Simulated assay, not measured.
Amino acid sequence: MLEMVAKKYGEKNNLSDKGTLAKNLRLMADDLKEKTIIDPKTHEDVMRLISDTRSMVSIENLQRILHSTSQMPSEDDLITMWDCFEPLIVNALRNLQPSSK
């Protein structure tokens, strides 16, 4: 879902594809902050998560889990991941909705 949202958000907002999920998420988070769609604290939290390479909710670890046949996150880990990325995903999806006039 993160990859699809980052791709669609980038396309709609004319952001260049940076080639990796982490870089595209950073670009999306920066754009959302610049447009004041997310506040500076949320942006800081998201940037920390995207840059983190050792936690369970890191992008690197998430991709490792998704492409593994033997690793499976616990329910608590999945809830933690959602809690961490929810503000970014929800606000990006809201931005993708057509404007009502």
Results as ranks from 00 to 15, higher is better:
19 G>R: 04
19 G>M: 12
19 G>S: 08
19 G>A: 13
20 T>P: 02
20 T>S: 13
20 T>G: 03
20 T>Y: 12
21 L>G: 09
21 L>P: 15
21 L>C: 11
21 L>F: 15
21 L>Q: 10
22 A>R: 02
22 A>S: 13
22 A>D: 03
22 A>N: 02
23 K>F: 15
23 K>I: 14
23 K>D: 15
24 N>Q: 12
24 N>L: 12
25 L>S: 14
25 L>T: 11
26 R>V: 09
26 R>A: 03
26 R>D: 13
26 R>Y: 11
26 R>W: 06
26 R>E: 14
27 L>W: 05
27 L>Y: 09
27 L>M: 13
28 M>L: 15
28 M>N: 00
28 M>H: 00
28 M>W: 00
29 A>T: 04
29 A>C: 08
29 A>D: 00
29 A>F: 04
30 D>W: 02
30 D>C: 03
31 D>E: 11
31 D>M: 06
31 D>G: 03
32 L>H: 00
32 L>C: 02
32 L>E: 01
33 K>H: 12
33 K>C: 11
33 K>A: 11
33 K>R: 13
33 K>Y: 11
34 E>N: 10
34 E>D: 07
35 K>E: 14
35 K>Q: 14
36 T>Y: 05
36 T>D: 08
36 T>W: 07
37 I>M: 10
37 I>G: 08
37 I>Q: 13
37 I>Y: 10
38 I>V: 14
38 I>P: 03
38 I>D: 04
38 I>R: 01
38 I>C: 06
39 D>C: 01
39 D>E: 07
39 D>R: 02
39 D>Y: 05
39 D>S: 07
39 D>F: 04
40 P>N: 09
40 P>L: 05
40 P>F: 06
40 P>D: 11
40 P>Y: 03
41 K>I: 14
42 T>Q: 01
42 T>K: 01
42 T>Y: 02
43 H>A: 13
43 H>T: 08
43 H>W: 15
43 H>F: 14
43 H>K: 11
44 E>V: 00
44 E>I: 00
45 D>A: 09
45 D>Q: 10
45 D>V: 07
45 D>W: 08
46 V>Y: 11
46 V>K: 06
47 M>N: 13
47 M>A: 12
47 M>H: 14
47 M>C: 13
47 M>V: 15
48 R>D: 04
48 R>Q: 08
48 R>W: 02
49 L>D: 12
49 L>I: 10
50 I>F: 02
50 I>V: 10
50 I>P: 00
51 S>K: 09
51 S>V: 04
51 S>T: 11
51 S>W: 09
51 S>D: 15
52 D>S: 10
52 D>V: 07
52 D>Y: 04
52 D>M: 08
53 T>E: 09
53 T>Y: 00
53 T>A: 01
53 T>H: 04
53 T>C: 02
53 T>L: 03
53 T>S: 06
53 T>Q: 11
54 R>A: 05
54 R>M: 05
54 R>P: 00
54 R>E: 09
54 R>F: 06
54 R>S: 05
55 S>I: 01
55 S>P: 02
55 S>F: 04
56 M>K: 06
56 M>F: 09
57 V>M: 08
57 V>R: 04
57 V>D: 08
58 S>N: 03
58 S>P: 03
58 S>L: 05
59 I>P: 04
59 I>V: 15
